[in-house]
């Protein structure tokens, strides 16, 4: 009888899991397998030659420009992720700890507002702000300060990205902060810990999962983004997604596009493994 119940529960579990498994298989694993296979084919003058080889990967890792694009992407993404954490933590702390409860919801809504606009609109808005004769420089001139020349640069890309991902991280860190039981802080104080020691040894470790999840999301979204570097970088910094678009749009070299995409996915997977290890959820 008990076996029958276990069987029934197992079947039920599989039935519940089936849509998600099917979805993942059809819309992730299958396209991924096709992309992986295509990365081993070659583009020729007559189309795509479907013979297996590592030519695309050898070209990719043997071309300094491609490697530079990969490192540009990594550098931009790591700077953005780090800056976003540094800005988001105090912001989340202020919302969770300092803002009166009745205004907290409003503060969160304000944090979420950037998500309501598209990447393109947000990036063009930043380009208008940072332009030579844009909002920022007009304001600086107005108060007698020297103007900044950061439009069409890596600084502009980092700024545009950081604006968005700070808000994303604020939400994940805020969620961690509000889940902390208040008596942990009281216990730490009872044991003689000052505010800094309490933060360092109690609050920060307990909110680390929120930081890690937000940081991973920021990393994955940032390294794969094409629009922001294209609009704010002004074609002065070649990142990996732009290289992928060049191969797709100019050369129609789908096998090389697939190889570059696999490398991009490998980088994101590595980042996930680091985060998973950090959170001790790696199996």
């Amino acid at each position: 009888m008990s076996l029958r119940i276990e069987d029934r529960e197992r079947r039920r579990a599989w039935a519940l899991l089936a849509p998600a498994v099917l979805w993942t298989a059809v819309f992730f694993l299958l396209p991924f397998a096709i992309m992986a296979a295509m990365s081993l084919w070659q583009k020729t003058d007559d189309g795509i030659e479907r013979t297996w080889s590592l030519v695309n990967y050898m070209t990719l890792f043997g071309n300094p420009t491609y490697i530079e694009a990969l490192f540009n992407s990594l550098e931009i993404t790591l700077i953005v992720t780090l800056l976003s954490i540094l800005l988001a933590y105090p912001l989340a702390w202020i919302i969770a700890e300092e803002v009166p409860e009745r205004y907290r919801r409003l503060a969160l809504v304000l944090a979420v507002v950037p998500f309501w606009t598209s990447y393109i609109v947000r990036s063009y808005a930043w380009s208008l702000v940072l332009a030579k004769q844009g909002v920022l420089n007009t304001a600086l001139e107005g108060i007698g300060l020297p103007t900044l020349d950061i439009s069409n640069s890596r600084a502009a890309i980092v700024l545009g990205f950081t604006h968005f991902f700070t808000m994303l991280l604020t939400l994940t860190i805020y969620a961690s902060l509000t889940q902390l039981p208040p008596n942990l802080r009281r216990a730490a104080a009872d044991l003689g810990a000052g505010p800094w020691a309490t933060f360092r040894h109690v609050i920060l470790p307990l909110t680390a999962p929120g930081i890690a999840v937000g940081a991973f999301l920021s990393f994955a979204l940032c390294i794969g983004d094409y629009v922001t570097p294209q609009i704010l970088g002004g074609g002065n910094d070649l990142a990996l997604p732009q290289l992928i678009m060049l191969q797709l749009g100019r050369r129609a070299d789908l096998p090389m596009v697939a190889a570059l995409s696999i490398v991009l996915m490998a980088v994101v997977t590595l980042a996930y493994l680091v985060v998973a290890r950090f959170m001790k959820v790696a199996r």
Binding site: G47, L248, G249, R250, R251, A252, L254
Partner: peptide, 11 residues
């Protein structure tokens, strides 16, 4: 924009 992009779409 650009013949490469057009041929990519056709392919």
């Amino acid at each position: 924009e650009g013949t490469g992009a057009g041929l990519s779409i056709i392919e």
